[in-house]
Each structure stands twice: as structure tokens, then as C-alpha cells.
């Protein structure tokens, strides 16, 4: 590996950090609303807990997904290191731009979808330059990833439905459900939310650091701990500097997300995400938790579920991938054409 010019190094790390920050501020925060809502923990406690567990998940279980995103889609070894550098930075910039726009307009866009699309855009750019052929791109991996995007919300939904049904079965036997909700179940939510923060860390950290890890020459090899740690820190900073707003909003709005429902949704979502992390699949954690919440709703957990929002999520999903592919592709081609 040739020495990396410091400008690129700093720019890459800054973009990675920004992505990590945005994940912490939104995606991780989306999963933590129920703990604050159920008043099991204070905001400060939630942030500390989520920070520690997400950090552990990112650092020790984040490498599989990182390998898929960084080196699993585009055949990095076959490409000139300079092109890899510019390509990965273009991908990172494209994903960061799109996520910024989406966040500004409060669109429910996934960071995982954005980064995967952006890496594919870089691959297509290489194919255009005849550095690689179109067939060299791992379409099989892409198909697997897209399948995981569809399966993960449904997995979360089915599992949450079943868990909540089992929960109801036990609640039926109790004479004092409110007492259970404000007692033992509240503590279970602390556990389930921690589990969720851990599993989110293992999947989401890749979205922030995979392109940079590839630039630094770690594709297909073990990802060094320091890069994962760097991503973990970024997520934690995002959660603590901005994510609390999202947590507040959710805690206030989802007053119906009682401990028994929150627990069911958390466990289902965390397990689903963790399974996909171990398969190395970058799924949308936010979509999975929404699938899980709907699962609880279908098991009679909620009086009303807003399917209009679900439609919006699906549209965002369909728009994100082509937009990010195009953005990343154009940035890459443009930068190379400029002689950078």
C-alpha cells in the first residue's frame, strides 16, 4: 500500500465520522425511545447505556458487515489503488450528501442502503472506465444484500408478533397488568434496549467506516480494531450531541409503547439485526425496528398503525438506491476526469 496523502486521509476520516455521527443521532436514537418513554431510565442513563453497548457491538462485532460493504461488492484487488481511493471517497461523499438531504427533509432513508448504493456506483464507474468489467461486480452479493433489506423488516415483524403473543399469554394470567408493566417489565426493557444498542452497533458501524477501511487497504482482510472503534466513537458522539432530540420526540409521541410492547419489539429487532450482522449483511436497523413495532401492532399491541408512513418508507427505499448510485458514479467519474 502506497502512502496515503494526508488531505485524503483527513477528508475520509471526517466524512466517516460525519456518517457515524448521523447514525448515532438518528438510527440508534430511533431504537431508544421506548426506554425513555416507559420512564425506566433517565435520558442521561439511556445515552450512557446505549453508548457503551453500541460501542461494544461496533468494535467487536462490526467487522463482518464492514467486509461485505467495503470489499464484497466491488472487486477492490483488481482496481488501481488511486482509483480505489477516489472511488471510496466519492461513495462516502455521495452517501453523506444523500443522508444530509434526507435528514433535512425528515425522510425515512436508510444509511445502509445509501452506502451500499454508493459503493455500487463506484463499481459501475470503474466498469465504465473499463478498469473492470460489469461482470466483475459481485452481483450475487448485491442480490443477497437486497434480499436482506426485504427480509429484515419482515423478520422483525414476525418475531415481534410471536414474542408479544407469548407475552400476552403470560399477562393474561396476571391480575395486575399495570403493576407488572411498571415493575419487572420496565427492567426487562432496559435489558432489551441494551441488547438492541449492541446489535445496532454491530451492523451500522460499517455504514460509516467501510469505505475508509477499504481506502486504507483493509478489504477482504481483518478490519483493525481502531477503525471500528473510531466508528463506534462517532456513533456515540452523534447520540449524545443530537440523538437525544429524537429520543425525546419518540418517547413523547409513542406513549402507547408500554414496557411489554417495547420489550417485544426490541428483542425481535435486535435478534433479527444480529443474525444479519453475523451473515455480514448491511440491513437497515430503522426499518427492522419499524417492522417489529408493526408486528406488535398486529398482535393487538396498538389501536392504530400509520401505514401511510410505511408507504413513505418504501418509497424512500426505492428512491435512495438509484439516487445514491448515480451520485457516487457521477462524483467518481467527475473527480477522475478532473485529473484528481
Amino acid at each position: 500500500m502506497t502512502a496515503l496523502p494526508p488531505v485524503y486521509f483527513v477528508a475520509g476520516l471526517a466524512l466517516s465520522f460525519y456518517m457515524a455521527w448521523n447514525i448515532g443521532a438518528n438510527d440508534l436514537a430511533n431504537s431508544m425511545g421506548d426506554v425513555v418513554g416507559s420512564r425506566a431510565l433517565t435520558m442521561r442513563q439511556v445515552i450512557v447505556l446505549a453508548a457503551i453497548l453500541n460501542f461494544l457491538g461496533a468494535t467487536f462485532f462490526g467487522s463482518r458487515v464492514t467486509k461485505t460493504v467495503g470489499g464484497g461488492i466491488v472487486p477492490i484487488q483488481a482496481i488501481d489503488p488511486h482509483l480505489v481511493l477516489i472511488g471510496c471517497l466519492s461513495a462516502l461523499l455521495a452517501a453523506a450528501l444523500w443522508i444530509t438531504i434526507a435528514t433535512y427533509f425528515s425522510l425515512p432513508v436508510s444509511t445502509s442502503h445509501s452506502v451500499v448504493g454508493a459503493m455500487l456506483g463506484f463499481g459501475l464507474g470503474c466498469a465504465l472506465m473499463k478498469t473492470i468489467s460489469l461482470g466483475d461486480i459481485s452481483w450475487f452479493v448485491m442480490v443477497k444484500i437486497v434480499a436482506s433489506w426485504i427480509l429484515s423488516p419482515f423478520g422483525g415483524m414476525v418475531m415481534a408478533f410471536l414474542i408479544y403473543k407469548v407475552m400476552l399469554h403470560f399477562l393474561k394470567k396476571s391480575d395486575n397488568v399495570p403493576k407488572l408493566e411498571s415493575g419487572i417489565l420496565r427492567y426487562l426493557v432496559i435489558l432489551s434496549s441494551s441488547y438492541q444498542a449492541f446489535s445496532f452497533g454491530s451492523n451500522d458501524v460499517a455504514n460509516a467506516i467501510a469505505p475508509m477501511a477499504t481506502v486504507l487497504g483493509f478489504s477482504g482482510t481483518e478490519i483493525p480494531i481502531w477503525i471500528l472503534t473510531f466508528g463506534g466513537i462517532g456513533i456515540v458522539v452523534g447520540l449524545s450531541t443530537w440523538g437525544y432530540r429524537v429520543i425525546w420526540t419518540i418517547g413523547k409521541k409513542i406513549t402507547d409503547l408500554t414496557p411489554s410492547r417495547g420489550f417485544s419489539a426490541d428483542v425481535a429487532c435486535a435478534t433479527t439485526v444480529l443474525i444479519f450482522s453475523s451473515l455480514g449483511m448491511p440491513v437497515s436497523t430503522t426499518h427492522t425496528i419499524i417492522g417489529a413495532v408493526i408486528g406488535v401492532g398486529l398482535a393487538r399491541g396498538f389501536d392504530a398503525v400509520n401505514f401511510g408512513k410505511v408507504k413513505q418508507i418504501v418509497y424512500s427505499w426505492l428512491v435512495t438506491v438509484p439516487v445514491v448510485i448515480a451520485l457516487s458514479f457521477l462524483l467518481f467519474i467527475g473527480l477522475i476526469a478532473l485529473g484528481i
Binding site: A25, N30, T103, Y104, V109, V246, T249, N306
Partner: peptide, 19 residues
């Protein structure tokens, strides 16, 4: 919604208050 808050919070809108 007034001022934009620079957040993505689909979770907050998925479950409606009980009618």
C-alpha cells in the same frame, strides 16, 4: 412542522395515538 430539526424519526410517526 415549522422549523426543521435535522432529524429522521420514522419511529415517532408509525404508531398513532389511540383513536
Amino acid at each position: 412542522m415549522g422549523r426543521r430539526k435535522f432529524t429522521r424519526t420514522p419511529m415517532a410517526e408509525i404508531v398513532r395515538r389511540s383513536p
